[in-house]
Write a protein that binds this DNA or RNA. Structure first.
Lengths: 297, 297
DNA sequence: CATGATTGATGCATTTGAGGTATCATGAAA
DNA sequence: TTTCATGATACCTCAAATGCATCAATCATG
């Protein structure tokens, strides 16, 4: 094939006009150029596409076949170019997003909803994962953006604050604290704690442990569950108490009470984090969006 | 779009090799030319298709999208070119063929069967029509080739002999002639004839009438039917006799007898005829075929 | 019948762009 | 550090595409 898309465009014009001068005009070129381009195309194919009778141009059967195909090719090409541009600009694509319990219980649902409304062409693939695993998957390129429990400082990554939440104590309604409107952290010193496994809840413990230590005790964890839901389930069954964040209210279940801890000013941060060197249109769009929605901005 | 199929071909090579030097080699061009072609393509699209990191080339998401589309376009193009060539050469196409009763009762079925075996891609559209109407439809471009009762001389048309058939007399078995192994034309002078309407059977009458006149009589047509089958039906019902050709034996029905006419040496010619100025691949192939099968050759 | 108008093809000069060779800049490997 | 591999750049050459002027054929018209 020694002809290009230009020949195809020219051919379509002539086939539609059946008139070289008009077709040339429509294409914005001179008529001789068009005549020769079509001749070239015919020579190259070894096929007569038009019958020129000095007064009328008619298209041959082969020409009709070529016209149909050519129109298909041009449409496909145009479609491909548009698609490619949209993928480049991030209007179309797939975004793999990791999230923690704290993210999904808090600001993330609205964030994703807002983004989807704005960028309907983007397919979001949310993956539930604890912070530690998200960081590994981000590193391995298995996730595009992670919503994790911060602070996280990581070489080659950028981040953006999503939410800051107060800590609350969650107890069963039969528990003595249940009637209180607030408590002091020290009061939890001798309580039984329900929490997640140390490895998975590592980044939450970075908050909890120092806070307790400052209050003069080490929390006694008597039961473990994998996620907030499981933890609250155990608390609801009277196994013990737990400390989570205020967004745990969204997961509320009957029989539970959450009580503000009045003497803890520290907040649990949830941050979005992503590899800064691997960048594509969708990721860029998404990052722009979450930055515009960040409480920091 | 200011790029051509060449750019697409180059792009596909690079996308598949992910290596400019190897891709260039595969394309049979120098590496700098390829680098620039891809740059040009990227500039034109306004999209980064590859990430070049001096050691590795990786394709972007947009690049993957473009690759898929490009492969589709190239396939479509190739397919179109092949199709067009086949249509041009007559391996693919539609051929509208007219035929008379004499043609279809005689050599035509085998002729069409042979052609279809040789050119499976051609769709034959047979139309039953008397000679007169076929000639009008050929003139109007509604038929490609007609199989008509000759001889026909027509400006701008070419023809080819298909068959020459003896005339026979067809009678009901109760008729006195029924036992004869041959008869003389003169013996039919006072018989009742069954035949087609004069307008439609015009070209058959060109044979019959002069023959009879030479034998000293004008056939007395007492009943008309539209086609051979109808005529034979009327003969079978005892309405009269008829004169057809030997291929009428193929339409034979119980109670009929066909008797050679010994003193008529003239034969009824069936010829293929077509407009010589309008020509396309399928028609050419078909004409070549019937010429190769013609009893004249 | 002659003339003018219309249409696609051709000749020639000019411009565009695609290709090749040599070389550079950069980053990984030895 | 040196060496090697890789893609990018500079510069030149040549083929291809384009435009302008013109030709040849055909049709319409007076």
């Amino acid at each position: 094939m020694k002809f290009g898309l230009r020949h195809i465009r020219y051919f379509i014009a002539v086939a539609e006009e059946l008139h070289f001068r008009r077709a040339a005009e429509r294409l914005g070129i001179a008529q001789p150029a068009l005549s020769r381009a079509i001749q070239h195309l015919e020579d190259e194919l070894g096929v007569t596409l038009f019958l020129r009778s000095n007064r009328h141009v008619t298209i041959t059967e082969a020409g009709k076949t070529f016209l149909q195909g050519s129109q298909g090719v041009m449409n496909a090409m145009e479609h491909t170019v548009n698609n490619t541009k949209q993928v480049h600009s991030g209007q179309i694509g797939i975004l793999r997003v990791g999230y923690t319990d704290f993210a999904i219980a808090g600001a993330l649902p609205n964030l994703l909803k807002g983004f989807r409304t704005q960028q309907a062409g983007v397919t979001l693939q949310p993956h539930h994962d604890v912070t530690t695993d998200q960081l590994l998957k981000l590193e391995a390129g298995m996730l595009d953006v992670g919503f994790v429990t911060g602070p996280v400082v990581k070489q080659g990554f950028e981040r953006c604050l999503i939410q800051k939440e107060r800590f609350v104590c969650v107890v069963h309604e039969s528990h003595p604290f249940s009637a209180r409107s607030s408590i002091q952290l020290e009061e939890l010193a001798h309580e039984d704690f329900v929490h997640g496994p140390a490895r998975d809840w590592e980044h939450f413990y970075y908050y909890l442990i120092p806070l307790c230590r400052r209050a003069g005790f080490v929390p006694r964890i008597v039961q473990e569950a994998y996620n907030s839901d499981g933890i609250l389930g155990l608390v609801a069954s009277g196994m013990g108490i737990t400390v989570l964040t205020e967004s745990a209210n969204n997961l509320a279940r009957p029989g539970l009470k959450s009580i503000p801890i009045s003497n803890v000013t520290e907040r649990l941060m949830t941050v979005a984090i992503w590899k800064s060197d691997v960048m594509n249109g969708v990721k860029k769009m998404f990052i722009d969006y979450i930055r515009s929605q960040s409480p920091e901005s």
